[in-house]
Design a protein around this nucleic acid. Sequence first.
DNA 1: AGCGTCACAGCAAGCGCTTTCTATCTGATG
DNA 2: CATCAGATAGAAAGCGCTTGCTGTGACGCT
Lengths: 348, 348
Amino acid sequence: MTVTLADVAARAQVSPATVSRVLNGNYPVAASTRERVLRAVDELDYVLNGPASSLAAATSDLVGILVNDIADPFFGIMASAIQLEIGGPGGRAGGERLAVVCNTGGSPERELTYLTLLQRQRAAAVVLTGGAVEDAPHAAAVAAKLRKLADAGTRVVLCGRPPTPDTGAIALTFDNRGGGRELTEHLIGLGHRRLGYIAGPEERTTTRHRLEGHRAALQAHGIEEDPRWTVYGRYDRQSGYEATLELLRRDPSLTAVVAANDSVALGACAALRDSGLRIPDDVSVAGFDDLPFSIDAVPSLTTVRLPLSDAGARAGRIAMGREEPPPGGIATIRGELMVRGSSGGPRE
Amino acid sequence: MTVTLADVAARAQVSPATVSRVLNGNYPVAASTRERVLRAVDELDYVLNGPASSLAAATSDLVGILVNDIADPFFGIMASAIQLEIGGPGGRAGGERLAVVCNTGGSPERELTYLTLLQRQRAAAVVLTGGAVEDAPHAAAVAAKLRKLADAGTRVVLCGRPPTPDTGAIALTFDNRGGGRELTEHLIGLGHRRLGYIAGPEERTTTRHRLEGHRAALQAHGIEEDPRWTVYGRYDRQSGYEATLELLRRDPSLTAVVAANDSVALGACAALRDSGLRIPDDVSVAGFDDLPFSIDAVPSLTTVRLPLSDAGARAGRIAMGREEPPPGGIATIRGELMVRGSSGGPRE
DNA sequence: AGCGTCACAGCAAGCGCTTTCTATCTGATG
DNA sequence: CATCAGATAGAAAGCGCTTGCTGTGACGCT
């Protein structure tokens, strides 16, 4: 029923081995023979059986990209850049690889299961994007899995994720702490002394690092932080909205709100507006990531730009072995402070 | 080196067949035996060889989701919903399937290549999301591919994409024409008579349908359209920005701008503001899709809400055979007009 | 002329799993 | 107590491809 290699071989009057070699192009085949084979492939509309080929060759052309939330452009942009380099069809790379993105939804279990599934498929490479969860047992489980993948020859790259020592994984980490610090220092420089902070989910590394940067800035400037000034939430707009109302309730005298990311910042803006406050006249707002929509906010958002696309591209190339991993297997990628209209001096 | 089924069998003192049956759970195995096998699996840290298993069983647990632009939440939201139903790990479904999303970047060739790759992997199902490209040869090629996939037992579902007759694909189509018409009628109802339209890429079905709806509305109300009022672009913010400036240049007397989608509308808003025009006092703006950020725009965006999440979930269930396909294999999903602050009566 | 060298092409042995068919054992049944 | 159905377990035949090794002419070299 389905056409197999043997059928093609018969039609082209060669052995299956020859057909395989033509298709894989890693063994000399006379031009005339090759052409005959290719014609047969075409005439029969033959499609290679992936599983069979992977089984025999003990490798596959699958590359997995794990993201926390596929509906969030933060991940979409990285995934897109990675995929382009991995070479999915038409990408910059030549080979035809099946670069696939897997949505973990931020759940540790799903992350682990996806890794197993990819291991099962004998994936050629795996790229994990975004922050990790800081639960110790889970972190250990993931590390063990990554080590096993690496041992089995799968290249493992972390993009925008802290390093996992002793796993053989290459890490391209974002300097969330530095960015957070720079951002808050900008606000302090403008004269703000009472700053609210809307954090992401408490157990994420990204959340912790950004918050640490924020606090480092406060401390460096002798500002004592009021515990009421920090609210944890999710990395989405609604969370920012609610958290802002909560902050306002706790301390109406805040003059600035720093958000865990741009979506949260947008929600914060909405909440402030709905509360009758002007931005930045009454309250300044800052985000993080500099996603495309941030510049369109009104006023446009002061934030920290992360080179998502570049980082993704680099991670992709490393995953494909087309670029040298950074020395020590770890590189830190810095963000860039983007000062825009949403931040200004505090009201009197 | 790597642990195989046979190793597990040896350790559990059973035959490989039994281990396989325990793992697949589709054949009676005595509880005590099962337990022994499971323990061996655990002790050896055994991971099934996916390719081998797919080869032997002639099926795989891979499900492909094709999207035009993974960095666009329009697709991210659908993909996320689909994936949840497909049952990637932790999803609503039980089985562990590898639901993977493939980013075509809107390129017909990549779309085709991904379909071939998926066919090669003997994917269990494929979901294609978003508008199609209207190039005849390409459309034919895709149709042929879909037919072949369907013939090979792969379930094919289109989500937010027009039907492809005779391919065996189930289609869940968005009523872009109806939505476009309703939106423009709303604007006309407010008194607008000179409406600019920023369309998407000319060759996309989505673009054409939305534009047709817009024109139908104009025509129904006896408004003769000026060809200068339509500009084609991409489905992104920047395109909206540029197109709006162009529209303004062509005819400064426009009182409303209808955009191909929300991102474009956001760009339009920015361009209007930068041109010193107020929204909606000077010019009304309308989008399409109702993505999460639309409500946060200032003023919030009048748009047509598409139930992306519901549609994706339904497509996912159909792809998994857990929901009956609609009669005739085609269902049309309607949008809902969301009237918000960005639209108002025209200026005098 | 004799022989080592190439450049190709084919043989055949798996890769690790699934599944059909068959064998065995158990307890129930007449 | 013989017989049989039912419940499990095993043997073995592939699934479709890759690849190490083995030919086999043709060619060039001494």
